[in-house]
Structures are given as C-alpha cells and as structure tokens.
C-alpha cells in the first residue's frame, strides 16, 4: 500500500459510511473526476446526449416548431421507398468517396515518397504541403475554389492561353462533382504527413537487401513499401473515408447550399442539412444522420474485417 493509499484509507475510515459504489468512487477519486469534468460534461451534454436525442427524434415527425409525434420507422421507410433525393445524395456521396479517397491517398503517398528521399528543406516542404489541409475545409478556400473553376475563372483563363475553351466547371453537372474531388485531393497534407512518418519507419536495409537481390524500384515499392506501410495505409483509408462521407462545406459553398446543378453536388450531409434547416424536417434529418452513422460503421467494420488479408503488422 502506498503512502497516498494509506492516507486516503485513513480518511475513508474516519468518515461516516457512504452508500453506493458511485458515491464511494467519487469520494475516493474526487479530484480526478473534477479534472475530468470538462470532458465528461462535453461528452454527455454535447455528444452522447444529442446523439441519443437525435436517435429518438429519428422515430418522430419533429419539425422544430411543434412537439414531436412518434411515427415509428416511417422516416426510414420513406428514405428507401419515396425519396429520390436521398438516392441522389447517396449516389453523389459514394462517387465522391470512391474517387476522392483513392486519389487523395495516392497523391499523398507519391508526395511523401518524394519527400522521403531526403531533402535539405524538408520541414519547410512538409509545412507547405500540409497547409492546404489546414485551410482546405474552410469557407474561404471553398469560395476561392468557386472562383478558380468558374466559367471566367483562373482555370479557364489558363486553358485559354493554350487555345482551349473550358466549360463552366462548377455549374455544369458533368464536371461539378469532379471539381470537389480535385479540391479534396488538394488537401492531401494530413495523410501525407502520416505516410511520411510511416515511410521513415521502414528500415533502409530492407531496400538494400532487395536491391542486392536485383529488385527494381517498382518491385521494391510493390513488395516492400506497400506491405510494410499497410498499417498506415489502413489508418488513412479509414480516416479519409469517414472524412469524405462527412464532407459538407465545399459542396455547400460551391453550390450555394443547393447541391446543384441538378443535384450533382448533393452530398449526403448537405441533403441532411437541407432537410433539417431548410425544410425543418428535423425528425427525418435525424433519421438521415443515423443512416450515415450506420453506413460509416458498416464501412469501418468491413475495413477492419479485411485487414487480415492485406495489413501486415510487425508485432
């Protein structure tokens, strides 16, 4: 028994008997709980509480103005049977996730491999490449993106110098989603930093042994780098996919909150926002939110299940 325990035990013995394990726990570790209090309050009041309330609301017709009436699974049934915009939002979001995540990770890995070759000003390059990740999800960057890809924007001006007349990227439904994919790829800094850290953990003598065996750079990349980096790739895939499912700001700003043109940028979260705050169908929006949670959970669980086939842990 430590001196602290002895003192605490002495105090406990001197005090009157308290009832219940919670009271005893608070009595014994009061100072600890006091320090935990800000997080506990935040977690229960701002995360768990609202989440549970939204779960309840998803089974109601709550419209912000009147009391919620319980409607059972009606919101969920409507989603899959009578809501074309829900299907459009799912389709747009899945296309966005399927394109932006692999492209962003491939780009981040490529840049990380270049930086990993050893550069004098590596910290400066790292900071420069990371900057878009800090700014990328901001409203200002989304506005800038809108200017860049507008009909008379910078991209088309650039194309005009080589005689190409570019379309209006953000107002053409054939291209608008892809401008958002490009914006996402541009925010490659965060996974790049993680890839760079992972690459630096791969011992140089693995490559030296492979080069003595005559392995080409491509073979070294495929047979050594990718397998040894697989835990980091897995982490980045999960995190970036969740981020992509949750993407909202760029679509909101570029489409002016409409998800247009012709629902081509109607991200799932944007549709959820419209239902909640444009049409005040808070119950339905809550159901949409829980479906997104389930989609992300299924994806994450599926990802974890596949790890035994492609993720190599060294321990």
């Amino acid at each position: 028994m430590s001196a602290y325990d002895a003192i605490e035990g002495g105090k406990s013995a001197a005090r009157p008997e308290t009832s219940g394990w919670l009271a005893r726990a608070i009595h014994r570790n009061g100072a600890g709980y006091l320090f935990l209090a800000p997080w506990l309050i935040g977690f229960f009041c701002l995360t768990l509480g609202p989440a549970l309330v939204s779960l309840y609301l998803s089974f109601t017709d709550f419209d912000l103005l009147t009391s919620p009436e319980f409607v059972g699974a009606q919101n969920y049934v409507r989603m899959v049977t009578a809501d074309a915009k829900f299907a459009a939002a799912i389709r747009v979001t899945l296309v966005y996730v399927a394109l932006s995540v692999p492209l962003k990770l491939a780009f981040a890995l490529a840049i990380a491999m270049v930086l990993n070759r050893g550069m004098r000003a590596l910290p400066a390059y790292r900071a420069i490449f990371y900057l878009p990740s800090l700014l990328g999800t901001s409203v200002a960057i989304a506005v800038l993106w809108r200017q860049l890809f507008a009909a008379d924007g910078f991209v088309n001006s650039l194309l005009a110098t080589v005689g190409i007349e570019g379309p209006s990227w953000i107002s053409n439904p054939n291209y608008s989603l892809y401008t958002l994919v490009v914006l996402s790829v541009w925010q490659f800094g965060s996974p790049m930093i993680i890839f760079l850290a992972g690459l630096r953990q791969i011992p140089a003598d693995m490559y030296e042994a492979a080069s003595l065996d005559g392995a080409s750079s491509r073979r070294q990349f495929l047979r050594i780098t990718l397998p040894l980096l697989s835990p980091v790739i897995f982490f980045n895939v999960v995190i970036q996919t969740i981020e992509a499912f949750k993407a909202f700001t760029p679509a909101f700003i570029i489409s002016g909150g409409s998800g247009g043109p012709i629902n081509s940028t109607l991200f799932y979260t944007l549709y959820l926002y419209q239902e909640a705050f444009s049409y005040f169908r808070m119950g339905y929006a809550s159901a949409l939110a829980w479906v997104l949670v389930i989609i992300i959970a299924i994806f994450t669980a599926f990802s974890f299940l596949t790890t035994k086939y492609w993720v190599h842990y060294d321990d």
């Binding site: 042994a209 065996d213 005559g214 392995a215 190599h312 060294d314």
Partner: peptide
Amino acid sequence: AMVFQSYALYPHMSVYKNLAFGLETA
C-alpha cells in the same frame, strides 16, 4: 550477397518467401 547486422528480413513474408524473394526477382 550480403548478410546485414539487423538481418533485414522482410517481416511480412514467411521464411520461404524471404528465401525465394531474390530468386523470384531473378
């Protein structure tokens, strides 16, 4: 052929694959 201080074995490959790597490459 070189034997390294750290052995430089590929941790994600079986012993057989480690031995076969150079031959497969060749």
